[in-house]
Amino acid sequence: MCEHDWPCRDARLALLISFEGDRVGLMMYLAAHLANALEALPDRHPSMIVGQILYWVPRRRRS
């Protein structure tokens, strides 16, 4: 862990590598962390937490 909010840049890269293109699996993993974060950070606005944890994931490319 570093001093930045999770997932920091390095953690994001590590997650992308470990999930190897499994976007659904990554989103499920992050959703579990989101639920924990929402509970652990009651003073923080939920949209900020969602943005921090989920919105960085690359979108699927359409064919």
Rank of each mutant, 00 (worst) to 15 (best):
L38N: 03
I53L: 07
Y29Q: 05
V50C: 13
W6I: 02
L41F: 12
V57Q: 14
D10P: 05
E39F: 11
F19N: 11
G51Q: 07
R59P: 09
S47I: 06
E39H: 08
R9F: 15
R62F: 06
L15Q: 03
D22Y: 04
R60P: 06
D10S: 14
S47W: 10
L16K: 02
R44G: 07
L15H: 03
L13V: 05
H4F: 10
M48W: 07
I17L: 15
A35P: 12
F19W: 14
L54S: 05
G21N: 00
L30E: 06
L26N: 03
L34S: 00
W56T: 01
Q52Y: 04
A40N: 01
R60W: 04
P42Y: 02
P46Q: 00
S63M: 10
P7S: 15
C2P: 03
M1G: 14
E20Y: 12
R61T: 03
R44Q: 15
L38M: 10
A11K: 14
M48D: 13
E20C: 13
P58E: 04
R9Q: 09
A11I: 09
L41H: 11
S63R: 07
P7D: 11
P58Q: 02
L15W: 02
N36T: 07
R60H: 12
W56E: 05
E3R: 14
Y55V: 00
L13K: 11
P58D: 14
L13S: 15
A40F: 01
Y55I: 02
W56G: 06
R60M: 08
L41W: 08
A37E: 11
W56L: 07
